[in-house]
Simulated assay, not measured.
Amino acid sequence: MLISLQREASLKDFLSQSFENSSNIFLTWGITSIVFVTLLSVLISQYIPFIPNYIQDRSFFGFELNKFGFTFLSVSVFYLLKSVLTYFYFYAVRNQKKWQKFYFIATRFYFLIAILLFVGCIQIYYFPQNRLETFQTYSFLFVLIFIFKNFFYLFHNSKILPKNWYYKFLYICTLQIIPLLVLWKFLFD
């Protein structure tokens, strides 16, 4: 992606690139999202306790979902719906000009998180430790990253969220916190 879509940019150049000088923003966002969802699914599928019976009983062309498939499908639908709802949110609050800047900035953030997820996947598969301790550590790190992401969006120099505080509050509650709690309940309950 950095070679073909970003004109052979280094990691530093990619992360420090300005919105006006960037190219292929949407394709970069799509590729980063796919990599992020795949790595997140690989990481948390190890901790999924079971696949719900109503999903396990279904088969698609003779294939059944395993824990990774179930997690990948759930996380993919989650982030796809969240992206669509965020798009509608920006248009509903009449802030559609900032939508492209929003996913430009989100791409850089999720790119860095994908690198951390890659390290986490290597740790789980090649340096196994106590599963409960690892799960607690990763859960704590995910909460910290989630909190940091919301502050990052709120206080970014580009002012990607609307100016009014109640729109910011609406975004954080309805498009950040509640969907994540629903995904958590779906995967781990």
Rank of each mutant, 00 (worst) to 15 (best):
residue 135 F to C: 09
residue 117 L to P: 00
residue 76 S to L: 09
residue 125 Y to I: 07
residue 92 A to G: 15
residue 96 Q to F: 10
residue 101 K to R: 15
residue 176 Q to K: 06
residue 126 Y to W: 12
residue 186 F to K: 09
residue 59 S to W: 06
residue 159 K to F: 00
residue 58 R to M: 13
residue 157 N to A: 13
residue 61 F to N: 14
residue 30 G to P: 00
residue 81 L to G: 10
residue 137 T to D: 08
residue 121 C to V: 10
residue 57 D to W: 05
residue 154 L to K: 12
residue 43 L to S: 03
residue 123 Q to R: 11
residue 18 S to F: 07
residue 150 N to H: 08
residue 24 N to I: 04
residue 77 V to D: 07
residue 37 V to I: 15
residue 117 L to W: 04
residue 185 K to S: 09
residue 155 F to V: 04
residue 107 T to R: 00
residue 3 I to G: 08
residue 102 F to W: 08
residue 169 F to Q: 11
residue 96 Q to M: 12
residue 70 F to G: 00
residue 64 E to R: 14
residue 108 R to W: 03
residue 166 Y to P: 02
residue 40 L to P: 00
residue 18 S to M: 10
residue 21 N to I: 05
residue 155 F to M: 08
residue 143 V to P: 00
residue 171 Y to V: 01
residue 80 L to N: 08
residue 81 L to C: 14
residue 89 Y to N: 03
residue 46 Q to V: 07
residue 135 F to D: 06
residue 40 L to I: 08
residue 109 F to I: 09
residue 138 Y to V: 07
residue 82 K to W: 03
residue 37 V to F: 01
residue 35 V to C: 11
residue 174 T to F: 11
residue 118 F to M: 14
residue 93 V to F: 07
residue 145 I to E: 04
residue 76 S to C: 10
residue 127 F to P: 01
residue 44 I to D: 01
residue 83 S to A: 15
residue 35 V to F: 07
residue 181 L to D: 05
residue 46 Q to T: 10
residue 11 L to V: 15
residue 189 D to L: 10
residue 91 Y to D: 15
residue 141 L to S: 13
residue 123 Q to I: 06
residue 43 L to M: 11
residue 10 S to A: 09
residue 50 F to W: 07
residue 58 R to Y: 12
residue 12 K to S: 14
residue 89 Y to G: 00
residue 62 G to F: 02
residue 89 Y to A: 05
residue 75 V to T: 11
residue 43 L to N: 02
residue 88 F to K: 14
residue 105 I to D: 03
residue 32 T to N: 08
residue 9 A to P: 00
residue 104 F to G: 01
residue 160 I to V: 15
residue 154 L to I: 09
residue 48 I to T: 05
residue 140 F to Y: 13
residue 31 I to W: 11
residue 103 Y to R: 02
